[in-house]
Simulated scan of single mutants.
Amino acid sequence: MLDLHHIFAMQKKALFFLLALCALGWGFTSYPTVFAGIAVGACFGTYNFWILVRRMDKFDRSISEGKKTVSLGSALRFGSGIASVAIAITLPQYFHLISTVIGLMIPYVFLFIGVIVSSVRNK
């Protein structure tokens, strides 16, 4: 299995590629709000994944040191998701709500694809 930091590095590379595609879609299609929503959602989704990686490191350290375990930051990630949706709701002329929610899920789709590719390579 891949290290969580390696997975996050791959996520960042995929995010930059996705943001470039969103910038092209925003600039050259008739759906700029959809591509802007995907970009905002993907940024917040990657931020949520970064929070998860950071909290998992703290969790692993506390388990290995025998200390009491800490929270994995679910409330912070939930709040971040609410913030991205709030941006899309308050600025509908710039961001499409449904595409923002889809963008929030893109890092997890990238994670799923990465696991599949990793398991195929290891076979």
Rank of each mutant, 00 (worst) to 15 (best):
V120D: 01
V40A: 11
G73N: 07
G114A: 10
K58L: 13
A36I: 07
G45W: 06
F112E: 00
P92H: 06
L21P: 00
F44P: 02
G41S: 06
L97V: 11
S64L: 15
S119E: 11
Q11M: 12
I102S: 08
V120R: 09
L2F: 01
M1S: 09
A75N: 03
I87N: 08
N48R: 08
R55N: 13
A23Q: 05
H96P: 02
M1E: 09
T100H: 02
G81Y: 05
L97Q: 05
R55G: 00
T90C: 15
R61M: 14
S99K: 04
V117R: 03
S80R: 01
L52G: 04
K12I: 15
K12G: 08
A75P: 00
V120Q: 07
S118L: 00
Q93T: 10
Y31L: 02
M105F: 13
N122A: 12
A83E: 09
S74V: 14
E65K: 14
L4R: 13
F95H: 08
M10S: 10
L18K: 01
A39K: 03
S71A: 15
L97A: 05
V40N: 06
S74P: 05
G25D: 02
A14D: 02
T33W: 05
F95C: 09
V34C: 00
F59A: 06
K67L: 13
M56E: 11
L97G: 04
P92Q: 01
I89E: 12
T33N: 06
I38P: 03
S118Y: 10
I106S: 06
L18N: 02
S62Y: 02
S74L: 15
N48H: 07
V85Q: 07
A75H: 07
R55T: 01
K58T: 11
E65C: 13
T69K: 14
W26E: 04
K58P: 01
L52H: 06
F95N: 07
G37W: 01
F17H: 00
F112I: 03
P92W: 04
I113D: 08
S84N: 05
G37P: 01
L76Y: 04
R77Y: 10
D3T: 12
G25F: 10
L104K: 02
G41M: 05
S84Y: 04
S84L: 06
K67Q: 12
G79Y: 02
S84F: 02
S74D: 12
G27F: 12
Q11N: 13
T69Q: 14
P107E: 06
A88P: 11
I38D: 07
L104N: 04
G73C: 12
P92V: 06
V53K: 10
V117C: 00
S30F: 00
Y47G: 14
G114N: 11
I63P: 05
Y47T: 11
V34P: 00
I87W: 10
L72T: 10
H6L: 12
I63A: 14
F16E: 10
S84G: 05
G103D: 01
